[in-house]
Amino acid sequence: MPSRRAVLALVVCLGGICAGCAIFGETAAVWGICSAAVLICGYFFDRFEKRDTPSGDIALTAVMTALAVAGRLIFAPVPAFKPCAAVIILAGIYLGAEKGFAIGALTALISNFYFSQGIWTPFQMTVWGLTGLAAGLLGDKLKKSPAALAFFGGAAGLVYSVSLDVCSMLWLGGGFSAERFLGLTAASLWFTVSYMVSNVIFLLLFVRPSARVFGRLRDKYGPGR
């Protein structure tokens, strides 16, 4: 049963979103998806905050986020070919869905401190967070089958690129236009393919060593799933 405070918070948030949609008119779609992204991240961060998290889990979340961010920084000279989505997926698989979300969302937030923050940050946080969450939920199946893992990685790259295209299109205003969407998708096709291919390659390269590292960590210290 949700508490009265939670219900009140939900009502206030929904009221704010509806009022914003009414006020902002043409930019209502941007306001709506911005609010949805902030709400999704806020919900999972609130759960992370309220849960009785042991120190090991916090340290592991921090270090995996650092690893994903460092991956993005190290591979910065190669556009769109980065291991961060692969690290987020592996973190989701081996550390659990909620930690996967936190690692994905924080990776987008912190890595954009080094690249550049923008209107895309909340969407990147949500998409990478949900990628980590989905990887955690499908963890057992993905661990058993490299083909399923490769398919998941490719799909994650595709969803990430298309989601950012949809956000860019809505930001341009004028609602959903098939012509504009196709134009944006065609312009970012090379990036989409790079995201998909890099995810598949890095996942297949990292999956076995990761299983060994996380297995050893669990046996030695206990944290992890």
Binding site: A59, M64, L67, L205, F206, P209, L217
Partner: peptide
């Protein structure tokens, strides 16, 4: 990168302790 992952895991355990 995998060597970094292994080192990170140990560093996380150290930070937790």
């Amino acid at each position: 990168f995998m060597a970094c992952v292994a080192w990170s895991a140990e560093a996380a355990a150290g930070a937790a302790r």
